[in-house]
Write a protein that binds this DNA or RNA. Structure first.
Lengths: 227, 227
DNA sequence: ATCGGCAATGCTGTCTGACAGCATGAATTT
DNA sequence: AAATTCATGCTGTCAGACAGCATTGCCGAT
């Protein structure tokens, strides 16, 4: 089910959960206690705390202790590093939410020029899949769709999120269970359905097709990871 | 007066400087080499690397090495001050995307305790609407719903976004075209439909009801603004 | 009794040494 | 030449130890 989560990731999750049930500014248990609590070494605890420190969730003072900083109210949503399959799945759900809305808005608001650019992006993607993995062209397709939605905030957030998720996949082993031909056919089909819905200005259908596309992609990725 | 810089801070500065002079995606020297270079222990190097990992500047792969990720966007999106109705509408669309997905996931994944908390939040909201504007309770209701979705990334992003939007529009509720009684009735109706869908574990209906709720709210706010 | 200093204790920061397990490239075999 | 095995390098993790800062609480001086 869950591909082995690293020990420091376990520590991170546990400590984050601990902080959720604690007052703002409260002092956390010593690292040694956390280590004993979770059955991990102090090194793993420190690894997790280093991440929490970097995220502003926690603050450590030498000789004094580590303190929860829940009111660290950053004015932005941070894309913290993805360190487990679980986190990848969570970000993927955020992407699904944004991208399906983008598809619907794109169908409602697209101009004819928008549609032309979208179709061009789709053709470029299919062409590049004959020779390479077409990863960049896939991103370009989704970017072209985002433009159609005419909502800069939404497309900006989605763009950063997508590249964040892709950067994880870049460094992980790219061993797909699909052949290039199968992959190309699937993308042609799924993207094609989205383009058709956008062309028909059918927002609900565009949303549904995008959901199908992303959910299918998630299934493919997860089955790859379980090989 | 030099407040002694911690060793891990030195390591962080040095490694960050090293990364600046290196290509994107390049492989960094092994931790042991960094340690020898800077005259520090591997523990301090790892402490610095943990921070760089959390910031998305580097990524480590077990058995392979640590790699520079200069293009890693550290933040999802900056919630800059809303300075126009157009921007408000754009953020509202982002919220709509996230919140409707949250509603669907909440219906799929809620536990019985989640549901109890959600219903309690709804009752608290209705009670507070008898005396005040119930703004804080409204936020609490949506927060309770976000908990049901069991996706920290998604609920965190949504929470920040919602408070951002609310910080702008807190005056809109004051000069509303609706009487308090009308407002209460509408919220009872719309929230009640969402709660019912979550209780029935009907994700699609929860999504639809949330969309309706937010779209109705947008219409109300915009009509207020045009008064 | 109050206040100032002082020792004891607890905690984080850092160091050292070691080992497991994954990834990669080289050597070897077919 | 291709496939397989093997050797090596690197990160992740563990264990134990010590330095130095903060805080607590005791003790003595006034």
């Amino acid at each position: 089910m869950d591909a082995e989560e690293s020990r420091s990731a376990i520590a991170y999750r546990q400590i984050a959960g601990y902080i959720d049930n604690v007052a703002d500014g409260a002092r956390l248990p010593p690292e040694a206690d956390f280590a004993e609590m979770f059955g991990l070494s102090r090194a793993s605890i420190r690894e997790a705390l280093a991440r929490l420190r970097a995220e502003g969730i926690v603050r450590s003072r030498k000789g004094s202790g580590t303190f929860a900083m829940r009111s660290g109210a950053p004015e932005m949503v941070r894309l913290s590093a993805i360190s487990s399959v679980r986190e990848l799945a969570q970000w993927h759900e955020v992407r699904l939410a944004l991208e399906s809305e983008v598809a619907a808005l794109a169908a409602d608001r697209r101009t004819d020029e928008d549609l032309a650019r979208l179709e061009a992006a789709q053709e470029a993607l299919l062409a590049s899949l004959l020779t390479g993995r077409g990863e960049r062209e896939d991103v370009a397709f989704h970017a072209a769709l985002a433009v159609c939605a005419h909502n800069p905030k939404l497309s900006d957030a989605l763009g950063r999120l997508t590249s964040h998720i892709f950067s994880w996949g870049n460094l992980s082993a790219q061993r797909s269970v699909l052949t290039m031909a199968e992959r190309r056919e699937l993308i042609a089909l799924e993207h094609g359905a989205i383009v058709a819905a956008v062309a028909a200005r059918d927002g609900d259908r565009a949303r549904a097709e995008m959901r199908r596309h992303l959910l299918a992609g998630r299934t493919r990725v997860l089955s790859d990871l379980q090989m």
